[in-house]
Design a protein around this nucleic acid. Structure first.
Length: 507
RNA sequence: GGUCAGUUCGUCUAGUGGCUAGGACACAAGGUUUUCAUCCUUGCAACAGGGGUUCGAUUCCCCUACUGACUACCA
């Protein structure tokens, strides 16, 4: 048998924002494709006209651009063969295969309305439209040819259903789960062509497209495993079983607490993003936070997601995209679902942020400073970043950690004031202010030595003076080395802050 | 209800027919520090239960329990 070129696809429905689970599926597809020198395709499965959401497709494209997952073919990539990667635009293609199945007695026409079927389900527990029940329904198998033709001529609405032969063991060979066998009698005659919008269902469109696009491996979420036997049957009925793609079903990403699939609601409830980018629902107008806006680095999100359900078998935790491409394998994807753990994601982000250079961090910080309308000199900004970068997990934390460098404190942490600010504090600080005025060059070590000398000479303890001095500079009992702060602020500013604090607190 | 699947520290996971069952996150303690963080060190903590097979099972088989997914003219 000829070795097929690796061609994989990510095929989302444009029904909303791109879920983090979908991102992981796309990532695994990408890693697999690149490792095998293959192609990754983005196909939009918009056969559900009722759930179509405007802007969702663009959102998906934008998300992958931010994440750094490039596609080789897809809706957003021009091609000169006139191929559409949007299923709604491929309708005529599907039609001919539905007709083929009809002609070959692998499918049939059914006239039952949704209401009639609903009624049936209410009457008969566990009702299923299949070989055992289709005789009692209104379809081209139970009706005579003349009756069927009559209904068609009258313009009656109908669906096309697959005709599943009962009592057949259908085998699916999954790259992750191994062999899964299901008896065809438990499968129902799924609708292949809908009457409501005249479009194929997922099942038909998906198989036809995967075949036509010569997909070699179908890597998708485990929620599809139950319908994989149906898909195998479709390949068989269409005569494509020999070129059928390999299947690999990925374990689900679960809620952090309790059980079940991770959903957008869990993110809202527990306070973490579930989408790559911010998403505004066009109908409800509700805004969902994104990883990007939350301050996550795309590399960190990728690394975190890669390890949620896969591992290299080593103790390595930090992987670049290149390393992931080299090391990834479907064999090492786990079978059980993984609970989502935002703490681990934060840890990855911290790690990746520490790897950034000062210049890179400054560039990421720029929009935030701009928003605050602060334009610090470059070398001043770089020194500040060097001083506080190891303290932050997110770029957004940078402002919180460094704001006092740009804006002098106007209020002071009352609990610290209460605990540390004594009657003689103002006197000491005034004396220190005078000492600082004489220090030149105004550098960290010189400042430290001078203040330390004052403290020993006056038989004071370090904590007493230092905490209050910090209060003057920062406004609270937090932050990096105090003498670094003072040195960076410079003597005039430091003096101003001491005087302002004394004035504010002692009166 | 039915079908399919899964089950190692709280979480993500490694692992083998015989190991003190390893790592990471989280948590705790100690160290560093003028503070808060970071950082470093140490610690805590797991093979779902029951039967087999075997000299020996966390590992192989069966059963049970639990969990999940699916069960639409949604994907």
């Amino acid at each position: 048998m000829m070795v097929k070129e690796v061609r994989v696809r990510f095929a989302p429905s444009p029904t909303g924002a791109l879920h983090i689970g979908g991102v992981r599926t796309a990532l695994y597809n990408y890693l697999f494709a690149k490792q095998h020198g293959g192609k990754l395709i983005l196909r939009i499965e918009d056969t559900d006209s009722t759930r179509f959401v405007k802007g969702a497709e663009q959102y998906i494209v934008d998300s992958f651009a931010w994440l750094g997952i490039p596609f080789d073919e897809g809706v957003h990539i021009p091609n000169n063969q006139g191929i559409s990667y949007r299923q709604s635009e491929r309708k005529p293609l599907y039609k001919q295969y539905a007709d083929f199945l009809l002609e070959n007695n692998k499918a049939y026409i059914a006239f039952d309305t949704p209401q009639e079927i609903e009624e049936k389900r209410k009457q008969i527990p566990n009702f299923q439209y299949d070989a055992s029940t289709r005789g009692g329904m209104k379809n081209s198998l139970s009706l005579s040819q003349a009756e069927t033709q009559g209904l068609l001529n009258k313009g009656c609405q109908y669906v096309v259903r697959i005709k599943i032969e009962p009592n057949e063991e259908v085998e699916v060979f999954d790259q992750i789960y191994g062999k899964v066998v299901v008896n065809s009698s438990v499968l129902d005659d799924k609708v292949l062509w809908k009457s409501v919008d005249g479009l194929p269902t997922y099942h038909l469109a998906n198989i036809v497209d995967d075949h036509l696009m010569q997909i070699s491996h179908v890597i998708r979420g485990a929620e599809w495993l139950p319908s994989a036997p149906l898909h195998v049957l479709l390949y068989r009925y269409l005569g494509w079983e020999n070129s059928m793609p390999q299947f690999a079903h990925l374990p689900l990403i679960l809620k952090p607490d309790g059980n079940g699939k991770l959903s957008k609601r869990d993110g809202d409830r527990l306070g973490f993003p579930v989408f790559p980018l911010q998403w505004t629902d066009p109908v409800t107008g509700s805004v969902s936070n994104g990883y990007k806006e939350q301050g996550y680095l795309p590399e960190a999100v990728i690394n975190f997601l890669a390890l949620l359900g896969w591992n290299a078998g080593t103790e390595q935790e930090i992987f670049s995209m290149e390393e992931l491409i080299a090391d990834f394998s479907l064999e090492r994807v786990s079978k059980s679902g993984a609970k989502f753990d935002i703490e681990k994601a934060k840890w990855f982000n911290h790690k990746y942020l520490q790897q950034k250079t000062t210049e890179q961090i400054a560039a990421l910080f720029a929009p935030i400073l701009q928003e605050k309308q602060i334009e610090p000199p470059k070398d001043y900004l770089y020194k500040i970043i060097d001083l506080v970068k190891e303290r932050i997990t997110f770029i957004n934390d940078l402002w919180e950690e460094s704001a006092f460098f740009f804006v002098a404190p106007d209020s002071y942490d009352q609990s610290v004031v209460k605990k540390r600010w004594k009657e003689d504090t103002a006197t000491h600080l005034t004396a220190i202010d005078n000492i600082l005025k004489r220090i030149s060059p105004f550098e960290r070590d010189a400042l430290h030595d001078a203040v330390a000398e004052y403290i020993t000479q006056n038989s004071l303890n370090m904590g007493q003076i230092m905490n209050c001095l910090r209060l003057c500079m920062v406004g609270k009992a937090k932050g990096p080395d105090l003498f670094e702060i003072i040195a960076l602020l410079g003597q005039p500013q430091a003096s101003k802050r001491i005087i302002h604090a004394i004035k504010t607190i002692s009166t």
